[in-house]
Design a protein around this nucleic acid. Structure first.
Lengths: 206, 206
DNA sequence: CGGATGATCTACTCACTGTCAAGATGCAGG
DNA sequence: CCTGCATCTTGACAGTGAGTAGATCATCCG
């Protein structure tokens, strides 16, 4: 899980503290969740003093913000990787949706954090950019096949609709609000079934 | 905002502490959000010692859980109040959706809390029941007009789809992820437009 | 080569939090 | 009256985020 092991002997200067802190922070976040997160604990696991993170991240919000930004980037990459799978628009949208849910399931605490950054007064322009980028893949898929046939505004509404549905399902499922197959939202056919109800490209309707 | 003013003189026994604590806790939660919530502060505002809440709520999770349960009840009542408005299914669903968003906007911190209770190890059966009840109104509306024509499973999928979409839109909008009319999601036509994309009752399609 | 500068990290402190144990208070029923 | 019990207070402890001052070290410049 650790991207680049710290490999610091016992030198005074860690050398790679920022990356090491991000790793240990992710570990703590995964174990204890957003509510139970502790910056001191993250520092402790990185083998460094309690106030070492300050220089790199400022405060807790800064550390979690950096973590969230990295997570957004990973999510975007995963979405863009499956963007071209499937034969038609519906299959591609479904693939994106399942990848979205899979990411959330594999990184629960991280996914929680990503949509809670306003609580930490952290507004990094890059985080906002990545958040926006997340919609990009979906947007491209929806416009892809029948770009000429779909009006600009309509495509945006479609994107937001699909995103809202998938995001809502994901959060509700992870919270345990949807009892069907709560164990693993991926194996359930619920999400594809819901997506079939959405008019993804009216012009191409069979 | 206070539902039943405490009206305690300076007696040793407050007399109505549970209700007073719920009120002051709601106040603190509204001001500081879930992350910045403090049980001590809530007790302070109720004019009572720091460990007085313990006897009534146990720990912080218990206090927030009681608050969330009350909030779920209020949400359900608001939803059930508009359940019968509108002429057809589409209008009723839209009314429910707007009421859902309105509740979230009017009670931001509370709405945040409602979907974060798993973080506090609080699993009250009544909370789960109210959470389930929230889907009831929507379910009734969807089955209402053409109950005979809609299969059991299909109706459930419709309910979850609408709920997921509305819930997703609400959380995304409150988080600032949807930039359209972010100021007030209610005045935007985005939500109704998205709902129009959902096949709410296929048999009745015009 | 050596000293100075700035980045990085530590040690210490402070106010605050949640939670617990022990005791004070007062209501209600015997 | 007085006794049991729910209620509330006091005091304490460990843990947290955050700030300040100082230690350590790499690097650059003379």
């Amino acid at each position: 899980m650790v991207t680049e092991e710290s490999r610091t002997g016992d030198r005074y200067h860690h050398g790679n503290l920022r990356a090491a802190l991000l790793d240990s922070a992710l570990e703590v976040l995964t174990e204890s969740g957003v509510a139970g997160f502790s910056m001191r604990e993250a520092a402790r696991r990185a083998g460094v003093s309690q106030s070492a993170p300050k220089h790199h991240f400022g405060d807790t919000g800064g550390l979690l913000g950096a973590l969230a930004t990295r997570a957004y980037r990973q999510l975007c990459e995963r979405l863009e990787a499956v963007e071209l799978s499937g034969r038609d628009v519906r299959e591609r949208v479904a693939a994106l949706a399942l990848e979205y849910v899979a990411f959330a399931r594999d990184n629960r605490a991280l996914f929680d954090l990503m949509w809670r950054m306003t609580q930490f007064d952290y507004n990094d322009p890059e985080l906002a950019e990545q958040k926006h980028r997340a919609l990009g893949a979906l947007d491209r898929v929806l416009r892809g096949t029948d770009a000429a046939q779909t009006a600009e505004g309509a495509a945006l509404v479609q994107s937001y609709a699909v995103w809202s549905l998938v995001h809502g399902y994901t959060t509700l499922a992870l919270e345990g609000a949807i009892d069907e197959e709560a164990a693993d939202p991926l194996t359930s056919d619920l999400l594809p079934a819901m997506l079939r109800l959405v008019d993804v490209h009216p012009r191409d309707r069979r």
